[in-house]
Computed example of a mutant assay.
Amino acid sequence: MTVAVIGGGAMGEAVIAGLVRSGREPADVIVVEQRPERAAELAQRYGVATASEVGAVRAAEAVLLVVKPADLPALAEQLGGQLRDGAVVVSLAAGIPTTAIEQRLPAGTPVVRVMPNTPALIGEGMAALSRGAAVTDDQVAAAMDLLSACGQVVEVPEKQQDAVTALSGSGPAYLFYVADALIEAGVVLGLPRATARQLAVQTLYGAAAMLRETDEHPTLLREQVTSPAGTTAAALRVLDAEAVRAAFVSALAAAAERSAELAAAMAR
C-alpha cells in the first residue's frame, strides 16, 4: 500500500518515522509538505518521497491528513478531485467530525477520524479511531495497521471521541503536570532538582509499565504499596482530603466539553 502523509510537522514526522520503523518501504511513503527545507529534511532523514502539491496523493491508497484543524476544511476541498478510487482518508486533525470531511469530498469517500497523542513521537502513542459512513471493515483494519506503527490503536464510536480527547489526547499533559508537581515537591523536601527529576520520571515510567505488564487493576497495585498507617497511607489521605480524584473527573469533563465545542464550530 502506498501511503500519502499530508503535513510534515511534529505529528506528521511521528507517523512517517513509525511507518518506516515498522518496515514499510520508504519509497511507498509520499510526504506532501509545502516548506521545501522541511521536505528535504524528511526525505534525507527517512528516504521518503516528497511533494509540494496535493496532486501527489493520486498514487496513494491511504491519505493521512496530519494538519492543524483550522487548515483541514480547505485541504479537504483541494483533495476532492485528487483521490484515486477506493482511497481511504485518515484524518488526525483534532475535533473535526467525519461528516465535516465527507461533505467536502466526493460522495462515498471512506473517511476515518483519529485522535492521536504526542507519545506517538517515540512510538508509544495511543490513538482512537472512528469510522465514517462509507468505511469498510478492511479499510478500518488497514488504517489500524498504519497507526499501530506509532503505538496502540483502539476503535471507538465517534460519539466517544470527545471523551477520548479528554483522556488520552490531552492525557500526556496531565501526567507532565503531575511529574512537575512531584519534582517540585522533592526539591521542597531537600532533594537536588536533578535527583528529584530522575526519581519522579522513573517512578512514573515504572508504575505505568506495571499497569500495562501486570494487567492488574490500579486499585490493587495501589493497595500493594500502601501499608497500614504507613507513609503512603498518610499521603493518600491528604490527596483524598484535597479531592484530587474529583478534580481529575472535573478536569476531564471540562476538556471533553471544550472538545465538543470545537467540533461543533468546525462542523459549521
Rank of each mutant, 00 (worst) to 15 (best):
V48Y: 08
G9L: 09
A74H: 05
L167C: 07
H217L: 01
V156A: 11
I16N: 06
M126L: 14
D240Y: 03
E25N: 15
E257M: 07
P172W: 10
I101R: 11
L182V: 07
E213Y: 01
A243W: 01
V29T: 13
D28P: 00
A255S: 11
Q161M: 15
P192H: 10
R222P: 02
G171Q: 12
V156P: 03
T214E: 12
A254F: 02
E102V: 14
Q103I: 13
V89C: 07
L167G: 03
A120P: 07
G9T: 10
M210W: 02
A229H: 13
P36H: 05
Q44V: 04
V31C: 08
E37D: 15
A39L: 06
A209K: 14
L204N: 07
Y174C: 04
A233S: 09
P36D: 11
Y46T: 04
P172G: 10
A76W: 10
T136F: 04
A267F: 08
G18W: 01
A194R: 13
S130Y: 06
L191V: 05
A127Y: 02
Q78F: 00
A49T: 13
M126A: 15
T136V: 03
R113E: 06
Q44A: 15
D240L: 00
Q82G: 00
A181R: 00
E102D: 14
S250D: 15
V201N: 01
Q78R: 15
P218N: 05
I122C: 02
V57P: 05
L191W: 07
S168Q: 12
Y205F: 13
G47D: 11
L105N: 11
P119K: 12
A234P: 03
L72D: 11
G9H: 07
P110T: 06
L182S: 06
A133S: 12
G47S: 12
V57C: 01
A247W: 09
V48Q: 09
E13N: 06
A142P: 00
L64Q: 01
V66F: 02
V187I: 12
M115C: 10
V31M: 08
G108Q: 08
A265Y: 05
S148C: 01
A235L: 10
A133V: 13
S168V: 14
R222M: 02
N117Y: 09
A59N: 02
E158V: 05
S259T: 10
P69C: 10
L19V: 09
R24I: 11
E184L: 07
P69R: 10
P192Y: 07
L129S: 03
P73S: 12
A49V: 11
D28K: 14
L221V: 00
A254T: 09
V31T: 07
Y177C: 10
L199W: 14
A263P: 05
T165N: 10
A143S: 14
V114H: 08
R268T: 14
T50H: 00
A17I: 01
P119Q: 13
P110Q: 03
G206K: 05
A40C: 01
Q139T: 04
V154G: 03
P73D: 10
T232E: 08
R113M: 07
A120H: 04
L175P: 03
A94F: 12
E53S: 13
G81A: 12
A256Q: 09
G86H: 12
A265I: 04
A253V: 00
V88G: 06
V188Y: 00
D162E: 13
L236V: 15
L167I: 15
L83I: 10
V178G: 08
G55W: 02
P106T: 08
M1A: 14
T165R: 06
G47F: 11
E124W: 02
E216M: 11
E155V: 14
L83H: 09
